[in-house]
Design a protein around this nucleic acid. Structure first.
Lengths: 268, 268
DNA sequence: CGGATCGGTTTATTATTTGAACCGTTGGTT
DNA sequence: AACCAACGGTTCAAATAATAAACCGATCCG
């Protein structure tokens, strides 16, 4: 293992629950010698990637990250970062993957990726706004918003876009309780007929839900096995994007998703 | 020089004007062997601090910065805390306000704010390191460092960046005595010609000087009245930031600043 | 007071880093 | 089309930097 890799692994010891670490602890956690650890963390401090907390002598992540993250974001915006993950999701499922963000109180598409597995596909080019009540993305996002915002949306007119669209606020609240319990959202032809869609919420740095990741599939192609595949692929992709964005997945949702991932691996 | 330091210096090669770099270029810029450079950048890529651009084979900053910066901010919202104050300072003075921190023996920018009062402004995007001897920020900070550090800096080569740059260590020591007596630093075209800059030191929790707050103004716009305004606004802003950071202003400096504040209110 | 643990330093030993030379490939020039 | 220079990446003996045990003074804690 290279020295550089050893030094950089120290950065991964820090987390929200363990924001600063003493020298001896760090050496133990990284399973390296204390003297070595000292040299490494000192190098990180010199580069600004770590720093010593005044008062206590523990170490924490350094100020350089602010500058470098801003630089990274200037070169590679959120959209570009998410794009490869989105494309991989589309390839894995053979369906259309899309990612939408909450901007100005509306859910708007940020990016989408198509699979070339089928000649027919759900296209996203023409969608400007996702209605909250009629899409899996919308409901997934709404479920993790502040109650005030949620009720404001439900109080607005809820157009019946297809025969399947649910427009009763009470029924929609019930749907959201289900989404919260499941950790993912699904809808069947409520926005466009013949389209099944699957969505999971996405979270920003402060743990607030800022968007949703979704897969839209032709209803005719959706088999029970395919549903399982899409759910699993989507959870995997959502985790990746949240990490890339520096976001925080709520503990409750993490638990739900992890349980699904374990179940998928052990079908008994 | 440690291997880790060599690897981390690669990160500083990236900038707004040079967002991605090829292997050979990188080796040249960092003045290291190409094979070495390859190993180092590969290690950085493995840790997510760098990544290879798809299509081109150049390298750029990696996705890990978003996550780590968010983590850093969650623990130490220095920048967030300082930002509104900085913006207010820029608005009050009509000039560019910036804040820099001492990181690994160098003074590096943490945040900056612009005023929209004038069409022309001093931009800070491209500054990576403030030379101690040629900037008001640098001298303000250096004045409040341990003598050993101060002398070490003065012993280094002091490039003459403009015709106005002072490069004589003895003269610089004299400048710092003046700064100590005044409680603030000023420079005239010593870093960039036609730029006047005004700075005050910032202090951490233990009363050690950890950074500097500065205003950079176009020389042509600086009138005596404007100087008074900038000095007062800067002292006010510095007090706010030091408070927000939980810092301690040395008693001597507190006295000097208070005296200025009183004088400003009673111009007699 | 005493023992345990802390952050940090020193040292000979050891393992990693280093760089010249060398691939195959690419992209521009003649 | 032929050329050539520069590219990213690889190899391996030689050189250098990383390592870990022991040690130090300070501090915490019962």
């Amino acid at each position: 293992m290279s020295t550089v890799a050893k030094a950089l692994q120290l950065l991964d010891l820090f987390s929200r629950s363990r924001p600063q670490i003493g020298l001896s602890d760090m050496a133990r956690l990284a399973q390296i010698n204390k003297a070595t650890c000292f040299r490494l963390i000192t190098d990180l401090c010199d580069a600004g990637l770590a720093e010593q907390v005044e008062g206590s002598r523990e170490y924490r992540l350094g100020p350089a990250f602010l500058r470098l993250a801003a630089l990274r974001e200037a070169n590679v915006p959120l959209r570009d970062a998410a794009m490869p993950v989105l494309q991989a999701l589309a390839n894995d499922t053979g369906e259309t993957a899309h990612l939408s963000l909450l901007v100005g109180g509306e859910l708007r598409p940020l990016a989408y990726a198509y699979s070339s597995a089928h000649a027919s596909r759900i296209t996203m080019e023409d969608v400007r706004v996702f209605p909250f009540h009629a899409t899996s993305s919308g409901l997934a996002l709404l479920t993790y918003q502040a109650p005030a915002f949620r009720e404001a949306v439900l109080a607005r007119p809820l157009p019946k876009l297809t025969p399947m669209t649910e427009t009763d606020p009470a029924a929609l609240r019930e749907r959201m309780r289900g989404i919260e319990a499941q950790g993912l959202a699904e809808s069947h032809g409520t926005f466009e007929a013949d389209v099944h869609s699957f969505a999971v919420p996405l979270f920003g740095a402060l743990g607030t839900c800022t968007g949703a990741l979704s897969t839209a599939a032709l209803a005719a192609r959706v088999t029970p096995a395919q549903v399982q595949l899409i759910r699993a692929a989507q959870i995997k992709a959502a985790r990746q994007i949240i990490t890339l964005w520096g976001g925080t997945l709520p503990a409750k949702l993490d638990t739900l998703w992890t349980a699904r991932e374990i179940r998928a691996k052990e079908p008994t």
